[in-house]
Amino acid sequence: MKTRALTQLLATTSAPALLLKESSVQWSNEAFNELPKSDRHQVEHWGRESSDELLVCAGTLFERLIAGDHTLVIASGHRAVAQQRQLMQALIPQLQSGASPFFALPQILSQLLGWQSAAACTTLNTHQLTLVGHWHDRQQQPPQTLDLNTSLAASLYTDHAGATQVQEWSQPTRDPLLPERGIWLGQRVEDADGNMIGHLAVWDTEPQSSLADSIHLLQLCADLVGAWLPPKPADDDNKTFAADSLTHLPQRDALDAALEHIEQNHPEHDYLLALIDIDGLSRINAELGQQEGDRVLCTFADKLRHVCRPDDRVFRFGGDEFVMLMPAGKQPPPLLKRLGQINRSMAEQLGHPFQASAGTALMTEVNGSSDELMLLADSRLQQSKKQGAA
């Protein structure tokens, strides 16, 4: 190895680099010397003694190149430009449509990187995680609540833990999602204020893709999610939310705050959530004009208000979707019956056909998780629309 030429080439690169000869440090560049002392020691130890193929230290991926008695340890400068472009092309339209990144990313990551399984979790409380998105064997799996103590991701949530972790196991674990053996990559997700809000993970028994590519893309996704999600308000109870300019209903941010408040302060009470969609609003806009479409939205919003009990709340979720949040006692409120009455009244008042579909879910069906509540209601809404079209 031409060590002099090599060190000259790497001297000014921003990628930390370390050259070992017979397990002794022969040279390191300025970028490596600027690392914290503990990180330098970890990289040196891995370069000399570890058999692991890759090292993730302080969120940076290191690779090892060996020639004779020389070992070069260098931070991976690989950037999968094509994969980044594909990620953006798949993720951004879903975010713009209102989809949760924690629901959308597992399918995107699994298909893009070729891992058998991918998951995205958010923190439910100090002991539990909400599995929002789970893609396995080319299928979307249902959401569920996970025990943090039995999850392989538990180490991501400990103080001073690395935000990126690689784990390999050859015997069955307590994690209910994992096979008997495999490799797992996990990436912690933090909001704009640095608060832990969840994690992303991919795993497989025999990964076919580059670990470097996968780690880089997981880190990129975590940065995107952290930047996309708004920081948590310091005091949600005193926060004022802007109403929708057309229907004058509270919007999605107010719904999110209401669900979070219920989740944290009223776990003993049950609530019914209804996700309601106006069927064929785009057709009404195309055939009768935008003004008629706006009239439909305003009339429908007004009728939803009138069927609300004192403690019921209605929100405009976006586009042609509305959400009703209602306290549920021993018997859930007869929302579907009320919606049928509204459909008939709307058609009569507007003078043309009208139909709205709904999917409902109870908090007690999802162990108090608002994320799972929304996903379950949406799943039932899609079933209702399919049945109506049949």
Rank of each mutant, 00 (worst) to 15 (best):
A161T: 12
G59N: 12
R313W: 08
A31F: 08
A361G: 09
L325N: 02
R48C: 10
G194R: 01
T123V: 14
Q83S: 13
Q387D: 15
R313A: 11
V202I: 15
L178K: 04
P250L: 01
Q128R: 15
R4N: 14
A104N: 03
W27F: 01
E190C: 09
A227R: 13
T364V: 00
K21N: 15
F62Y: 15
L113S: 01
F62R: 04
L65Q: 13
E268A: 11
P101Y: 03
R4I: 15
C121M: 13
A31L: 10
F241W: 04
G47Q: 00
L335T: 13
A328G: 00
R85L: 12
H216W: 10
T205A: 08
M346C: 09
L200V: 08
G359W: 02
Q165P: 07
D235N: 15
H306N: 14
L218H: 01
Q341N: 08
H216V: 07
E63K: 03
H45W: 11
V296P: 04
Q341I: 05
D39A: 12
V225S: 00
S369D: 03
K386P: 00
Q290E: 12
L148P: 05
D191H: 01
L255C: 04
E348D: 15
G59F: 10
D39L: 00
F354A: 04
Q26W: 13
Q94T: 00
G340R: 12
V307F: 07
M88L: 14
S151G: 05
G77Q: 10
Q387I: 12
M374W: 06
R48S: 11
F62L: 07
L297S: 04
G198W: 07
S384M: 11
G98P: 02
H127G: 03
D39E: 12
E260P: 01
F354P: 05
A119F: 02
D302R: 06
V43N: 01
W203G: 02
S23N: 14
R316C: 12
L217S: 07
D320Q: 06
T173K: 10
Q128W: 11
D175G: 03
H269F: 09
A17T: 06
L20V: 07
L373W: 08
G59E: 08
D294K: 01
L18M: 09
S151Q: 07
H41R: 13
D213P: 05
P334F: 10
C57H: 06
L178F: 00
S24E: 15
A80K: 07
N238K: 14
A234T: 13
D253R: 12
A234L: 14
P230H: 09
L124H: 14
A286M: 09
P207K: 10
R48N: 10
L112I: 08
R174I: 13
S170M: 04
L87Q: 05
L217V: 10
A58L: 06
D277A: 13
P36S: 07
P176C: 08
V225T: 00
P250E: 01
W169L: 00
I74C: 06
K21W: 02
M326F: 08
R344Q: 15
R138Y: 14
S384F: 05
P16Y: 11
L339K: 01
A154G: 04
T164D: 03
M88N: 10
R313G: 03
H306K: 12
H160D: 11
N285I: 08
Q116G: 09
G280M: 06
